[in-house]
Simulated assay, not measured.
Amino acid sequence: MMKDKPDDLGYWAGWFAAFAIAAIFFIYIVWQNQTLRQIACDAGENDCFRQWMSALGGWAAMVVAIPTIIYLAKQVRDGDRHHRINAAFTHRRQRLLAASVSKYCITLKETTEYKLEFLSAENEEFRTDDVLDNVNHVLELLAATPLKVFENEIFTPTISVDFIVARIQRNKAKLDSQGSPELLDEEILHSLKINLAAVVRYADGIQRNCDAFLNETAAFVFNDELHD
């Protein structure tokens, strides 16, 4: 599909060149024709040609400058478009990652809140094996690779997922050492609930930062304008 003439630099450059050639040809004709020369110059003037060239110098400079300005403006526009396309490619994978992690954090948060509510029930005596299943489930959710990738590439939280996992694994080690038949030690239960609450805060913070990243990079999303 051909470009519109107003946007075609070659189209306008051709016209400027044509006008420049016509102007030079006109000056030559005037200079060669005695009658026209007398109209353009006084009889006593010796530097008539130089004066005319000086007078036309500003117009000639404008004729030369306009195509240059148009060309530079087109270069700036193309450079900006190229930058936006590169930025869109750069952010494409990260935006997909952020969108995926944001949804995943909703599941992580809701699941952990449910388990925390279960462990916070009053007048309940929890056996070790009952709690271990819940702990293992949370650890499986925290082991998801996208969480670490998001931390490494987009946002580094104050408390990392590895730190939280290490704390919960210490709780798990104490649970394993107790043995399944025994009732859960209150100190271990208290520590576990603190760590599960940290998981909820972590999931909430990561989700908010995912959404913030998606909003901040929305300008770099591919659209019809980039493909024109």
Rank of each mutant, 00 (worst) to 15 (best):
A218M: 12
Q75M: 11
N136V: 06
Y114V: 09
E124G: 03
T217C: 14
S120L: 07
F163P: 01
R93Y: 13
M1W: 04
A55L: 14
Q75W: 03
L56H: 00
A22W: 03
Q75G: 05
V101Q: 01
E113G: 01
Q94N: 15
Y114S: 13
A198C: 07
V199P: 02
Q178G: 05
A88Y: 01
E225N: 11
A197W: 01
V101G: 02
A73W: 04
L96M: 15
E45I: 06
F213C: 08
A166E: 15
M1C: 10
R84A: 10
W52P: 01
Q178M: 15
F118M: 12
E182C: 09
L196F: 08
M2A: 15
P67A: 08
D80I: 10
N46L: 12
L97C: 08
R50Q: 15
E110F: 00
L142P: 00
H227A: 14
R127N: 10
I206K: 00
L226C: 07
S177P: 01
P157Q: 05
S180H: 12
L108I: 01
A60T: 13
L108A: 05
H91E: 15
A17G: 07
M2R: 14
V199R: 00
I194F: 05
T68Q: 08
C48V: 04
K115C: 04
A61H: 05
V161C: 09
A73Y: 10
D42I: 02
D47K: 11
C48E: 02
P181M: 09
I194V: 11
A18D: 09
E140Q: 14
L9H: 02
Q207S: 13
K109V: 00
V199A: 02
N134K: 12
V165I: 14
E151S: 13
E225V: 12
L97R: 07
A23I: 10
D129L: 03
I27W: 03
A65G: 05
C41D: 00
A98S: 15
I206Y: 00
W12S: 08
K5I: 11
V135M: 04
I39L: 15
S54G: 06
G14Q: 03
L56I: 10
D7H: 10
D78S: 11
A13Y: 04
A88C: 11
F126V: 10
D78C: 02
Q75I: 07
K109N: 06
A143I: 03
L214H: 04
W59E: 06
E117Y: 08
A17E: 11
I164D: 00
F26N: 06
S100C: 11
W15Q: 04
E124R: 13
V221R: 15
A173L: 10
G79T: 04
D7L: 13
N33R: 09
L36C: 12
I29S: 06
K103V: 13
D130V: 05
D42T: 07
L97Q: 09
E122I: 06
L147H: 00
R93H: 12
W31C: 04
V161F: 01
P146F: 01
T128L: 05
R127K: 15
F220N: 12
F155G: 10
L142W: 06
L196D: 00
P181W: 06
L139S: 04
S180I: 08
K109D: 00
R201D: 12
A40Y: 04
S102G: 14
F49R: 11
D130M: 15
